[in-house]
Amino acid sequence: MTGGTAPRGGFLARLPEDGAAALLALGGDVALAAGTRLFEEGRPADRFWVLHQGTVTLSTRVPGRPEAVVETVGAGELVGWSWLVPPHLWRLAATAATAVQAREFPAAEVRDLCTREPELGRVLTLRVAEVVGRRLEATRARLLDLYAPPPGAAHPGRVP
């Protein structure tokens, strides 16, 4: 019921011609088995991925609890944005929840390319901002806990 393979627009669609080919050339396709750890929270953010297929979980550690999954990312989407923004350290950990096909990019080279190709850099930055904005909106919506019983409910969380 999850995953899918339809990166319709996708993170890499409709990039400016100048630099698009160079960007794609910097990346390489990878296949990751389910359970593969993509990165760890707090480590240098030296890569990022655009998923073709499969699902990646973003998680954090709470001592004494199982790994806490905060969001899943699927086909067409960007995994990792900390590479673009100082201090270039991962905010969360990422794990392949299923078998994953993705294009993997080296962060430093892409940052250099963005400096050389300002239009590509501008568009890529905007696009990352869009992703971060969407995740921020989603996070705020979830912060509201909208599906919870309304405040003052007669029997919040009751078990009949």
């Binding site: 995953g3 699902t55 979980t57 999954v69 899943t72 699927g74 989603a138 979830r142 599906y147």
Partner: peptide, 20 residues
């Protein structure tokens, strides 16, 4: 929104599902 330890499906808001 809140996966349990045995949940292997997606985590996030329903609008994120529009992407796929």
């Amino acid at each position: 929104d809140r996966p349990g330890p045995r949940w292997t499906g997606e985590v996030g808001v329903v609008t994120a599902l529009l992407e796929r």
